[in-house]
């Protein structure tokens, strides 16, 4: 008996990392899952990896930052499954461009070198001045608008059903200041506010909305960050290691399933104790 027996879930950004771990866990708990990613191929790669256990899974290629594409994705889900019990708004991006990433990694290494040599660090991140309009809009588009578009469509199914659970992937970067990827932090902070607002609105309809704010998780997205950057993130962590995608998936399961039936409007942060 699984915790999501008979349920239908849609997981955005399910092609890799945390999203893939959530799809795997949900299927193991008896859910039928629509796996979304930017392309159907990416979504299918998760389903292929899971093999026969994923027989009930369905791949959808959709850019969640495009409201028209989101509408057709939900039409597809409704046609195929007839209902939606769980939405996980997980689709996300790290950096907007290779330049941004390279600058952050280079500065992090310079700061680490100074600190190892016992010098106060001279390098500074100087991130925000170099963020382009396109970079800002892409962060807000994928994270915040994507979350909103999918949530709006999900509510159109869940509110008439009188039940449903929405889990939004925020970030520990939304809870504590970070000197880099400030556009990412802002977009994730918007997701936290969206979570609280819609939780209050949707609660009387029997729909719960919560967020997860992961810390440093070992994913393909995180792998692009230099060791210096990640090392600095986890150096002072009470649990001194990166988290695993499965350790976020278990939180998503708690919130998505009836285990979290009196939990709404909350932000749970599996971050190893970096942010308390």
């Amino acid at each position: 008996m699984g915790k999501l027996d008979g349920k239908v879930a849609l997981v955005t950004g399910g092609g890799s990392g945390i999203g893939r771990a959530i799809v795997r866990r949900f299927i193991a708990e008896g859910s039928r899952v629509a796996v979304n990613d930017l392309t159907a191929e990416r979504a299918r790669s998760t389903i292929d990896e899971l093999g026969s256990s994923a027989a009930a899974a369905h791949a959808v290629g959709t850019d969640v930052s495009d409201p028209d594409q989101v509408r057709s994705m939900f039409a597809d889900v409704r046609e195929r499954f007839g209902r939606l019990d769980v939405l996980v708004n997980n689709a996300g991006i790290g950096e907007s461009s290779a330049d941004e990433l390279e600058n952050v990694n280079r500065t992090a290494e310079a700061i680490l070198a100074d600190m190892m040599a016992g010098r106060p660090p001279a390098a500074r991140f100087d991130f925000t001045r170099h963020v382009t309009d396109e970079s800002w809009q892409r962060q807000i588009g994928v994270h915040l608008s994507g979350c909103f578009y999918c949530t709006r469509e999900a509510l159109r199914l869940m509110m008439p059903q009188g039940s449903g659970s929405i889990v939004n992937m925020a970030s520990a970067a939304a809870l504590a200041g970070q000197p880099v990827f400030t556009h990412y932090s802002a977009a994730k902070g918007g997701i936290v506010s969206l979570t609280r607002a819609i939780a209050v609105e949707a609660g009387p309809f029997g729909v719960r909305v919560n967020a997860i704010a992961p810390g440093a998780i070992d994913t393909p997205m995180g792998a692009k960050l230099s060791r210096a950057f990640v090392g600095a993130l986890i150096a002072r962590a009470p649990i001194p290691r990166r988290g695993l995608p499965d350790e976020v998936a278990s939180v998503a399961l708690f919130l998505a399933s009836d285990e979290g039936s009196y939990v709404t409007g909350q932000v749970l942060s599996p971050n190893g104790g970096v942010v308390m």
Partner: peptide
Amino acid sequence: EIAAAVAFLASDDASYMTGQSVEVNGG
């Protein structure tokens, strides 16, 4: 519903969670 949250936090399902406050309050 409180017991479910306690069991979650006490179990390995919450192995990367520490120092956190989980509110179970109907919103």
